[in-house]
Every structure is written in C-alpha cells, then in structure tokens.
Write a protein that binds this DNA or RNA. Structure first.
Lengths: 234, 234
DNA sequence: TCATACATTTACGTATACATTATAAAATTA
DNA sequence: TAATTTTATAATGTATACGTAAATGTATGA
C-alpha cells in the first residue's frame, strides 16, 4: 500500500510531497484552527488516519508533536482531544506574547539594523494603512501578522521565534472570530509605526515600552470581545 | 519480542513502566543533559533503539517530541543530532525565562495568595540559606530551582509553566557546569526574599522589577562564565 | 586525474500485524 | 436492586516488514 503515499496531498491539493507526518501535522493544524475539528472533541487515531488517507503511524507522530505544541491532548483510550481556547487561554497566550515581543523590540533596537533590513516591516505598515482605507480587515490582519513576525525576527532569538510560531496559530484562530467585531484598528497602525521608529533610533527601552503598551491594549480588547460574545470555548 | 517491553526500565532501574515512548523520552533527555550523548553528535534511530532495548517506533516518537522541545534536530539520513548549548543558546533561554518569570512574579502579586500558600517558597529560601552556610552548592541549586518553579506556579499561567519546564532541563545542564565556578550566591538569597515579600505585599511592579534585575544579574554571571571557560558547545 | 553516470547500500518513512490493557457490557451474587 | 466480578471489545503501544530514496562507492570515459 505504499501507493497511498501521496494521497493526502492529492486530496488536499497541497504543493509538494513532504512526509505524511508533516502533512498530517499541517492538515490537522488547519482543521483545528478552522474549528472544523471542534474544541473539546475527541478523535481516535484510526478515525483521523482514515480521514487523512494514511495509516495510523504518521498520524500518531503528528498528534504527538501537536501535543508538544499544546494544541491537543493525547488521552489513551479517549483519542486525541482538541484543546479549547477559552478567554483564559487567550489571556495566557497574549501575556506570553506581550513579554516576548516586547523583549524582541528591545533586542532589535540594540542590534543596529540598517534601513534596508526594515523593508518588510515598513511594507507591512503601509499595507495596514491601505487595508484600513479599503476597509479590508482580512488584508489588515495579514499585514499585522507580518509586522509582528518581522518584529520577532528582528529580536534574533530563535527560541522566541519558535514560541511565537507555536502560538501564532491560536492567535489567528481567536482573531478570526473577533475581526469584525472590533473597532477599526487605526491606533494599531500608529503604534506599529512608533515601535518601528524607536527600533530604528536604537531606543531600546522606548521600543519595549511602546510595544508592551500596544500589546496590553490589544489583549484587553480581544479578551473583552471574547468574553462579551461568549466565545468561551472556541 | 513483546517481552522486551520493560527491559529499558529494568536496565535503568526506573520507577514504573510508563510507555516505552515516555521512557525513551526521559532516558534520552537524561543522557543529553548529562552530556553522555555529546552535543553535536548524530545518532541513528536504530542505534538508539538498540541502546534502549526497544524497537525504532517508540524511539522515533520520542525523538520527534524532543525535536518539538528543541533538544535535538531530526535530520533524515543523518540521524538525530544532539543540539549544543552555546553561550548564545543560553543567552536566548535566559532572556526568555527572565521575561516569563518576571511576568509570573507580577501576576503572582496580583493573585492575592494567602500566607499559607507561600509555604514551599518560604521553605526553599530557608534551604538556600542553610545550604550556603554548609557550603553545599548542590543543595543550594536544588532549592533555588524549587523557588523559581514555585514562582512560575504562582503566576498561574499554564503555558508559562510549560515553557519553563521545557527549558529548565537545559538551564540545569548549564548550571551544573558553572556551579563551582561562580561566586557564592549570597545576593541571590536576598533577591529571592525581596521578590517574595513584594509578592506578599501585592506590589506587582516591584516584584516584577526586582525579579527581572535578579535574573539579568544571573544571566550576566552565567554567560560570562560559559564564555570565560570556553563551554562553547556544552 | 577528474568528472560523471551507474550501482549499491542503508536509513528512513510507512503500513501492517500483533500484544496489551482500559473500558464497558454482562453476569453473578448479596 | 445494587455492587462486584468476569468477560468481551476495542483502541492503543510496539514490533516488524518493506518500499523508497539519499548517500556512498565504483566504474567508465575524457
């Protein structure tokens, strides 16, 4: 049955044939983030394997990795449980990202990057402006995410980048729900610009303080919405 | 060959028979942290499987988890590579822990714990004092670690606790090397006491600031030693 | 001698078979 | 009926078989 090798890729129309384990990983992640695998639900290995058109082995490996990343819990005999994202969970994640991104901003300011290296971040900010003018919140969210990931990259701490990557999926998941409920993020754009300028100027503590403030603000807004609209188990 | 089930446990004399995957995980972790699997070295799955007295399957699962935790890198055809802990790596880890522990201190101060709940932390500090009097650095390190883990527990953020757990192994690894080189940690004890008092008093920003300062100090010392004594690849 | 093509080896990725064991259902007893 | 034991079921954990492909070695020709 080695012919089933690429079936999952074929079904999903994914680009290239990574290993089945990697495919299972990204597909499952996608399903979880889209809430097509509902939070709190349990799924047997064999069930997932069948769904993905591969054997249990790669699925099992994928779930173990997902567990290490905090997206699921593997409960022997109950299948893998999709963990939920309560406001409490989001609060935890936001707190962590606030600290680590702010630190990144601080580190970035001390790195002394050249103007050229700010290109992507600069573009991201511009795109956010454009998106706002066009009332295209989707595009805004994408650009916003790009800015944040650039910031983390500037921090030059690979472990922070890993942690960020780990949680960014879940942040995206929460954001998806609140994107159309939140006020127009005009202030966000200003915040970003100020942070970037502080980094440019090599003003580490300013960069850190500004970014932290921005994050705390964003958290308050998001958690408020999640609670208000009762997304208790996303 | 299902009789090989517990052989690994038997060999190592471990407590109970968790799954082989879990055993492989903890044994490998131990070997890595003790540097008995040298940093930078590569090991084939089959080699590790034989060493642990089990088949490739659980070993493979364990290495995937270890990879997700950042201790190894799985390189197809080259085996799993034991990642090294350069001063740069330790610097990254310390930076992260500094932020997250300081945040924990801040959160802890806002939680309003009762005196009773500080029991363990209080004991830890006392043990650190005793250990210093007896010049027992091992005992000091154990108590110090206990204090830090209590602090993280107080923060009441399960994800921070996870991250902390993930890196604490590596911190221990580095500390092992520097424990006898560092100056007597008398100031550390004072620092801890002050942080705990600030938490007691519900003084969040003070707790945060004190702990951050403590951490930054510790980092400077540790990294300095690592560089000075040339532990470039622990 | 060097480069290139071809053959060989071997480690990995995956499927599958099987052993183990937790759960639930059934049966027994008080 | 309720509690307890037994049995059956089914899902997991593990071993193993095997195809595939990467890395290495070998041979050939320039």
């Amino acid at each position: 049955m080695a012919r089933a090798q690429n079936s999952a890729a074929e079904i999903k129309g994914l680009p290239k044939s990574k290993s089945n384990t990697q495919q299972a990983l990204s597909i499952l992640k996608e399903l979880i983030l889209d809430n097509r695998l509902a939070s709190g639900s349990n799924h047997l290995e064999s069930e997932l394997a069948e769904m993905l058109g591969m054997s249990r082995t790669p699925v099992r490996e994928a779930t173990l990795i997902l567990e290490a990343q905090g997206l699921v819990e593997v409960k022997p005999r109950h299948g893998v449980k999709i963990l939920s994202l309560s406001p409490q969970d989001m609060s935890e994640i936001y707190d962590i990202l606030t600290e680590l991104e702010s630190l990144s901003a601080e580190l970035a300011a001390n790195m002394g990057y050249s103007e050229e290296q700010f290109q992507i971040a600069e573009t991201a900010i511009q795109k956010m402006d454009e998106a706002l003018e066009n009332d295209d919140l989707e595009a805004w969210a994408v650009a916003d995410e790009l800015f944040h990931s650039e910031l983390v990259r500037f921090g030059n701490n690979s472990r922070i980048a890993n942690i960020y990557r780990m949680y960014s999926d879940q942040v995206r998941r929460a954001r998806k729900l609140t994107l159309n409920l939140r006020p127009k993020p005009t202030k966000s754009n200003d915040d970003h610009r100020n942070v970037l300028n502080a980094i440019r100027d090599g003003n580490a503590s300013e960069a850190q303080i500004l970014h932290r403030a921005h994050r705390i603000q964003a958290k308050k807004m998001l958690i408020g919405l999640l609670e208000q609209y009762g997304f208790n188990n996303v």
